[in-house]
């Protein structure tokens, strides 16, 4: 069991490290495109974090009942083995929302390049005056 605790903590730690790296990218990225990449990674890591909350040790199974005529035993087995469906529901929503924002940001970056001729943050600030 100790080893499993270690693995779980390692997972959280790795996610935190990724989150910090991507936050750094968002803040310090020289180009808007780099900021966009960092932003997508940041959102994905938040999603991974909530999925990590929904898992458990032991025998697990996706939250899909594999039969259309379940008996009571089937349902009991399902409840005891399936992983948490709530984070999955939240994450699907969040994935779509992040994707929508990223699409829009992409359109904006292209438009800004048309107007300013660059995507470097510093240059844009200079051109803006």
């Amino acid at each position: 069991m100790n080893f499993e605790i270690f693995l779980q903590l390692y997972g959280y730690l790795a996610l935190m490290v990724i989150m910090v790296i991507s936050l750094y990218g968002i803040v310090r990225g020289a180009s808007l495109i780099k900021k966009l990449i960092a932003l997508t990674i940041f959102g994905d890591t938040a999603n991974a974090l909530i999925i990590f909350l929904g898992f458990k040790f032991g025998e697990i199974y996706p939250p899909v009942l594999p039969t259309l005529k379940p008996t009571l035993e089937d349902i009991a087995w399902f409840v005891s083995t399936a992983v948490d469906p709530v984070p999955q529901c939240l994450v699907i929503t969040a994935v779509v929302i992040n994707m929508a924002i990223t699409m829009f940001l992409a359109f904006l970056v292209i438009q800004i390049y048309r107007l300013y001729g660059t995507t470097m943050v510093k240059k844009i600030a200079k051109l803006k005056g």
């Binding site: 936050l23 968002i26 808007l32 900021k35 932003l39 940041f42 959102g43 938040a46 974090l49 909530i50 909350l53 984070p87 939240l90 969040a94 929302i97 992040n98 924002i101 829009f104 940001l105 904006l108 970056v109 438009q111 800004i112 107007l115 300013y116 844009i124 803006k128």
Partner: peptide
């Protein structure tokens, strides 16, 4: 300035909402 402001606003705003999502977690 509209496009520039929008992109700044959008990046900052989406970071904020993602942080809120972590709070929800």
């Amino acid at each position: 300035e509209a496009v520039e402001a929008a992109i700044k606003y959008a990046i900052v705003g989406s970071v904020a909402t993602t942080i809120y999502f972590i709070a929800v977690i």
